[in-house]
Design a protein around this nucleic acid. Structure first.
Length: 393
DNA sequence: TCTGGGGTCCTAGGACCC
DNA sequence: TCTGGGGTCCTAGGACCC
């Protein structure tokens, strides 16, 4: 049986700031922006005592805890610190999976062998991380990733929780359904409606494949059932992060309407997106324009291009076209653009050069003609698939 | 001053083809 | 004249996570 460890850095951004400025230590600390649309990104445990939590608007947090110190986030610094954290775990085993900036999974099967006390081992690791880097963490050890993640969440800060398969009923089943990783604030009330108040209630209904429960969760039901019965994913993916989409969005300094007002912000978003995609060495086939209206409802329109792109002008042209076609009359709070269906430009080039006659024969001639045309043009004007289908010429 | 920004995955309907 | 299903791709929206 696999031994999976989940390590979660406690109040990571807040801890990171106290490392930069030790005078902040022990004080109620809020990491986030102030002003319009500022929210709490992370806060220290001292601030949590007052009811401050992540995702809360900062002005609300300040009402609860007026003496809190607000610090603007320094993301690149957090990433550097986070990399040293992963390096320290990598000294134990190369089998680590980075889950986010402040957490990772590791396969400890070869480390926590018979004769090694897992609790003592984890406490040592925790102390080492704290002494060498100043980072407090919580650790969960279990046979699956889900259980390990649930375990590390149980005792914060600086907790260690071991969940053996036989202990799952004792440790996880009494927890409220809200603490189920993967079930959020939309689904948990609906589960409560059908009598599922705890993870144990969930397991009991899953054991008999309760039709209401199955219908409510859809495909996720099967994953969730496996999890609560002690099964599921225990494979560590050590691959470096390979994004499936790259997006940039921005809440405007004020609500805007019409191209004239929105355009400057849209240009910035597209430029930022282009440079991020280039940094990731990715091009994308679809451009999605995302718009949040003043009642916080999100709308989106997308266009699939014939050629992949990460060019700021092409992205902007497409985003502007979508904006003009659909959102000209809308009061806009946030604007965002996402590049999807990403490809590695280098790999694509190789594929192109490998084309042979048989493959050419199999392909749609119209598409090929247009691709060829686009390639010959200076600044390729990308045609959309929808246009071609309608056109047919 | 009300409520960020970065992602992943799933769903459901329509177009289109066989 | 009435009216199949299966498969794939595309789109818009939504749930969830950090």
């Amino acid at each position: 049986m696999a031994v999976i460890m989940h390590v979660d850095l406690n109040a990571f951004f807040a801890t990171a700031e106290t490392l930069r400025d030790p005078s902040l230590k022990g004080k109620p600390l809020i990491i986030g922006h102030v002003g319009r649309s500022g929210i709490v990104s992370t806060c220290s445990y001292e601030a949590r005592k007052y009811g401050v939590h992540s995702g809360q608007p900062t002005f609300q947090a300040l009402k609860l805890c007026p003496q809190a110190i607000i610090v603007e986030p320094h993301f690149s610094y957090y990433h550097v610190l986070s990399e040293s954290f992963f390096s320290l775990i990598r000294q134990i085993t190369p089998l680590i999976e980075v889950a986010s900036v402040d957490e990772c999974y590791a396969d400890m099967s070869k480390v926590l062998t018979k004769g090694v006390d897992p609790i003592a081992y984890c406490h040592d690791l925790q102390q080492k991380l704290f002494k060498e880097m100043g980072l407090p963490c919580s650790i969960g050890i279990a046979p699956t990733k889900w259980m390990a993640k649930m375990g590390s969440d149980l005792k914060k800060p600086m907790g260690v929780t071991i969940i053996r398969k036989k202990d799952i009923e004792k440790i996880l089943y009494p927890l409220p359904i809200e603490s189920f990783w993967g079930i959020g604030k939309k689904t948990s009330p609906r589960l409560r409606e059908i009598g599922i108040l705890s993870i144990g209630d969930f397991a009991a209904k899953a054991k008999v494949d309760d039709p209401n429960l199955m219908k409510l969760l859809g495909k996720f039901y099967f994953t969730a059932k496996t999890w609560v019965l002690g099964g599921g994913d225990n494979v560590i993916d050590t691959n470096p992060f390979d994004p499936k989409s790259v997006g940039v969005s921005s809440t405007l300094p004020r609500d805007c309407q019409g191209l004239e007002e929105v355009e400057p912000f849209l240009i910035n978003v597209c430029n930022e997106l282009s440079s991020r995609a280039k940094k990731e060495r990715k091009k994308g086939y679809t451009v999605t324009l995302q718009v949040k209206d003043t009642s916080f409802k999100t709308h989106s329109k997308r266009a699939t291009l014939l050629n992949s792109t990460n060019d700021e002008d092409v992205i902007f042209t497409e985003a502007k076209r979508l904006y003009k076609a659909f959102y000209e009359k809308m009061d806009v709070r946030l604007i965002g653009v996402t590049l999807e269906k990403l490809v590695d430009p280098k790999k694509e080039e190789v594929q192109m050069s490998l084309w042979n006659y048989e493959e050419y024969e199999k392909m749609d001639k119209t598409k090929l003609l247009i691709e060829d045309l686009n390639r010959k043009m200076d600044k390729p004007k990308l045609m959309r698939l929808s246009e071609i289908k309608k056109d047919g010429t």
